[in-house]
Every structure is written in C-alpha cells, then in structure tokens.
Design a protein around this nucleic acid. Structure first.
Lengths: 246, 246
DNA sequence: CGACCATTTGATATGGATCAAGCGATGTGG
DNA sequence: CCACATCGCTTGATCCATATCAAATGGTCG
C-alpha cells in the first residue's frame, strides 16, 4: 500500500484545507456545512471539521495508486490538491469507477476492514492521510467524532445512490448528469476543467469513450455546452442540461 | 406518512426477531455479526442488537406505502415478516428500485433529514418502527449505539455499491447477480421464493420485464435454474451462476 | 365461467457497442 | 528544428443486445 508516494511533503499547509464533500440532496441539515471553494478564505480546517486528528500530507504522481483493492483500510484520505478516482476491476477486465474526489473531499471510507475499491491519483495530488484506527478509536469515546464519521458515511451513501440513478438512464442523461455533478462541485462559474480522461468518464458512467465523445459533440451541436479544449467544458445552457437529466 | 397502516399489531413478538442485514463483502469484522436465519433460535433481539430502544410493530398490506419520497425521515424500520422495496420515480415516470428488504433487515436509513426513496410493502408485512430522533439522541450519548448506527450505514453503503456494480453488467449478469444476492439472503437451500414481481426485479436491475423473463427462460434452458412456478426459482447449478456473474 | 393481472413468447426497432480510421497535440530522436 | 511515433480524442460504418410493440398463456378471484 502507498508504495508509489513520491515524497512525504513537509506539513506546512496540511491543515490549510477545508472540508468539502459532495453536497447531498439536502446538506443544509448536516451537522457541518461543507464550505464551497472560493477565492477568499484559503485558510481552512483539517479533516473532520475541528476534531483534533491531524493527518500526514503526501504527494502522489498522476496515475499513482493510493491504495489497492483488498488492502486493509487503515486510513481515511482527504484531497488537498489534485483529483482522485476510486475504481474496481471486474473479473473479465472491465473497470468500474466508483467516484471522483476533488480538493476538500474525503475518500477511503469503507464498510469493512478492507478496501473494496482501489484509489488512484488522476493528476499529481496532495493527499492528507488520517489513521482510521485513530479515528474509530476516538469515535468510541468522542461522540462528536462519531457523528462526523456518520455524516461522512451518509454523504458517501448519497453519492452511491446518486450513482445508481445515473446508471439506469440513457447516455445523454448520464453525460448531462455527470456534467451537472461536476459543475456543482467546482463552483467556478460555468466552466468545468475535467481532470479525468474520457476513459475514466466512460467507466464511471458505464459507457464507452466513443459514446461519451459523441454525446458531448451532440451537446455542443445543440449549443448546450462548448469545448474550448477537449478537457474544458463550458456550460452554455444549464437549464437544458437539467432538462435532459431528469 | 404511514397513512396506510392497517393496524397496529399487539407487541407480542415485536422483539422476537434478530437483526439480519445483507452481509457486506466482509462482515466477519463488523462490530456485530448479523446472524443468519436458521431453524433454531427464533428468539431474537430487537433492532440495533441489544440496545434498549424498543420500537412499535405495525402491519402493512401488500402495496401499502410505508413512507414517501420527500417525507421527513423520522423512523428506522426493521422487517419482521414480509418484504419491502424502496423506490424512486424519475421525472418521466421511470421507476428505480433502491433495494429489497427481507425479514430481519433494516431500512429507512437516510443521509439527510428526509427520505430520498419511498418504501412500500411488497406483500403483507410486519414492520418494527424505531424513532430516529430517539436513536440519534441516544447515539449522541451512547457510543455503542453510535457504532451500530455507523455499522448499519456501512451495510447500506455496501449495498448501494454492489448495486452500482450490478448495473454496469449485461442482462444475464444482472439477473444472475440478483439471484445470487437473493439466495445469499434467504439461506433456504437452493430455492428462492421471490416475493416481488417481474416489474420490481426489472426496475431494480434497470431492465424490462421482457428481458428479465427471457433471461430466466434461457437460464432454465441451460439447466442453471428451474422454475416450478414463476415466483419460485430453484438454483440447479450455482457455480454456473457465479461464473456468469463476474 | 369470465375478467383480470402477471408472465412468457414472438417480431421488429434502436441506442449504444464494436471495429476502424482520422486528427490534433505532445514528446522524442536524429 | 524537423520527421515521426505516440497518445487521447473524435468521427464514421456496422453490428448486436436489449427495448419496444404485440399477442398468447396461465393463474387467481369474484
């Protein structure tokens, strides 16, 4: 595990990150509010809000494995910079992407004692590691930690359920849903810089790269989006997207 | 909410049920072990293991709604007898089944303060209700309750992730996976009494009833299963099924 | 018995997969 | 600095798994 870390960064800004996780259907009632990325306020809190669990920041190269399927789940991870994908291979080689994790978001939560997905950095990423045992140990005594662990698991559950809903839709709807999902997590105006490849998107949506590509092209032709470059998507007509998504 | 309850049963055997939830990939390490149904030991514990939270047993007719999408999530539910499905309608009328819950299993766990799926009894069912507020209140003080709430949420997460994996497979694989999933939860030898309709199965698997039916027929032709009646499936060759599933 | 509903079976249509080729962008070696 | 291999993405042509439309069968209940 964690064999491909490039170097253990100095901990200068380990805590200078705020917690940001995918907003659930209704996050106004969560015990803590994910603060969305904004230009001001780069100061931020370590994982788990204000709990005094400090992690180790590590740097991973793009394509570097953070942990593998089947490995013991010893840590919880928070993306500081970069992007991470979790993935799983079926017996016949097909790959399923479980999710993408952007700066501020937390991954590595697992039901059991071992990871059922692997995690890889998509681009060079700085990741904060928190020992899981430290956390669950703490949770056994500190109910506030326990609450936050529960809240994180709920977010992950909401994410998985939303993923299920995506996968029963048509190709157009999946792609539109994906774009909206990403747009909601990168609240930079209407443009989305996609750090992942078409193959990653395809494996997340249960489609082929060709279908993803064609669908983006057709959305572009319908003036719903535009693509200055293949990795940069500009939302030209968000309501059309939500209309496609249902 | 709960407008269609037929009657509030007397609580004779409210506690005579053991906790049984879908085993996750590795449940041997869970804080508590779901005990599988066996002929002996019909005595059992109320929801949440041995925690002193007692619920109210209610009876629901088949097709009765237990709670609706968007309603406040005030309760947690444990199936005593019968079967429950959770479902959600997309804007255009398509229905997605979130999951099926068999005797002993718990549903109604939600990330937010309101249900994102509705729940209906598939057949006449007895359901144990536990006030959620009582539980989370308890969890704030009792770390053991908190642990078990967390464990339940993990199970639900594992369930949703398994569902995602099902949905990216072929029709044959989905149906095979569904049969294996049900077989693993009804440990009665090799035969599965399906309480749900083909439409329910189709909406769970993201297929049409015709495809489900045809797939079952072809499995029968290949001598992998047999169907004494349309709702009763006998597994004739489980390893062939696991080979299909990958 | 007849109406109704769930399921199966049949015929046809189609969305997305597959196979194949083209097209930049980026990098490499001569 | 250019020729050219490589890689990620797009576009085109064809195929196939599953959806759709339609009808037959079978079980259940009044």
């Amino acid at each position: 595990m964690i064999t491909q870390a490039i170097d253990i960064a100095s901990s200068e800004d380990a805590n200078l990150i705020k917690l940001r996780h995918k907003p659930a259907a209704d996050n106004s009632t969560q015990p803590f509010k994910p603060r969305l990325h904004s230009t001001a306020d780069t100061r931020a809190r370590p994982i788990e809000g204000s709990i005094g669990v400090v992690g180790t920041p590590m740097k991973f190269a793009g394509k570097a494995e953070i942990y593998g399927e089947g490995e013991p789940a010893e840590y919880l991870y928070q993306v500081i910079t970069g992007t991470v994908r979790t993935s799983k291979f079926l017996a016949d080689g097909r790959r399923q992407i479980g999710g993408f994790y952007l700066p501020g978001e937390i991954f590595g939560l697992e039901a059991g004692e071992e990871h059922s997905y692997s995690a890889e950095a998509i681009v060079e990423s700085r990741i904060l590691l928190i020992k899981r045992s430290a956390l669950v140990g703490l949770a056994a005594r500190d109910t506030e930690v326990a609450q936050q662990l529960l809240a994180l698991t709920w977010l992950e559950l909401a994410r998985a359920q939303a993923h299920v809903l995506l996968l029963v839709k048509t190709a157009q709807e999946r792609v539109a849903g994906f774009l909206l999902e990403m747009a909601g997590r990168i609240p930079e105006g209407g443009s989305i810089e996609l750090p992942m490849s078409r193959q990653d998107i395809a494996d997340y949506l249960g489609l082929t790269i060709e279908t993803v590509s064609r669908t983006l092209t057709s959305l572009e032709n319908e003036a719903v989006i535009s693509r200055p470059t293949s990795r940069l998507v500009v939302l030209r007509n968000r309501s059309a997207l939500t209309r496609i998504d249902p």
